[in-house]
């Protein structure tokens, strides 16, 4: 049955891209969730939609404009937050609604409310090209190497920002690195689950693994298992049942969360 499935080039490419994103998302997610930054993933996803709209309007590669806009916005959000003039969540709300408004206006200008846009909103594994897989892999390597380099600092800052600062860790720089990596990951995940469901991919496996109450390393491990399992089985199930892939993956993740949550609660 699986052999049958792997005959289709687009399924193989979809699986490749999906697995790469499944590996990256919880690695970023654990730091976002623990720092109460979960909403940043969603915000940057909406920003990337504005980037895509710019790409569609001017005929540039939407993947590139999406990446550019999320990176730009990530620095904007950090600056706004550090200025202490607005609350952290308010900064996110400003960017989230602002970029969605911009996206809608730009799309109406380009008459781009078409099937193409639908792919960006909800993901479309079928349209992943081998070039996409290659660029996703390259960006993923960049994310993993950076995360690995700053792992210690990210853990300490997530646990106790003040003590980390006193111990000599450049807290603001580490925060910038984290949001920068989030921007990269969000742009990576667009073809798989689409703009609207990226946050789930980053947040849900981590939140599920946190219910298990394990050490930091083991929490990451379980989040990875849940994430990779959901993405692979989501792609396969959606193929056979002819369902939307992104939605299937996220529903699977949420089912695992519910099972773990209730099992743990009854223990």
């Amino acid at each position: 049955m699986l052999e049958n499935l792997l005959q289709y080039g687009f399924v193989v490419r979809g699986l490749e891209a999906g697995i790469i994103v499944a590996i990256i998302a919880p690695l970023i997610g654990i730091f976002l969730v623990l720092r109460r930054y979960s909403l940043i993933a969603d915000t940057l996803a909406h920003v990337s939609l504005a980037g895509i709209a710019v790409g569609l309007l001017f005929g540039w590669n939407p993947a590139v404009t999406a990446l550019g806009s999320t990176l730009l916005a990530s620095f904007g959000i950090e600056r706004l937050r550090n200025s202490k003039k607005v609350y952290g969540e308010s900064a996110l709300a400003l960017f989230l609604s602002g970029s969605l408004a911009l996206a809608i206006v730009l799309l109406s200008l380009s008459h781009g409310l078409n099937a193409n846009l639908f792919n960006y909103l909800f993901g479309s594994i079928v349209t992943v090209t081998s070039n996409d897989v290659l660029s996703i892999a390259l960006v993923a390597i960049l994310v993993v190497v950076t995360l690995f380099s700053f792992y210690k600092e990210l853990v300490y800052v997530s646990f106790d920002e003040e003590a980390a600062k006193v111990s000599g860790i450049p807290v603001r720089f580490i925060n910038t690195v984290l949001i920068f990596l989030t921007a990269l990951t969000v742009s990576l995940a667009i073809p798989i689950v689409g703009v609207l469901l990226i946050a789930a991919l980053i947040v849900v496996p981590v939140v599920t693994a946190l219910q298990l109450k394990k050490s930091f390393i083991k929490t990451i491990f379980w989040a990875e298992i849940i994430s990779i399992f959901s993405v692979i089985s989501g792609i396969i199930i959606s193929f056979y049942l002819n369902l939307a892939t992104g939605g299937t993956i996220v529903l699977l993740m949420l089912s695992i969360f519910s099972i773990v949550f209730f099992l743990k609660r009854n223990n």
Binding site: E153, F159, K214
Partner: peptide, 17 residues
């Protein structure tokens, strides 16, 4: 609810060093 063991927390003290 932070998922860290006692050992992991103390090890953080060595991180900047």
């Amino acid at each position: 609810n932070f998922p860290a063991t006692v050992k992991e927390v103390v090890l953080m003290g060595r991180y900047a060093h």
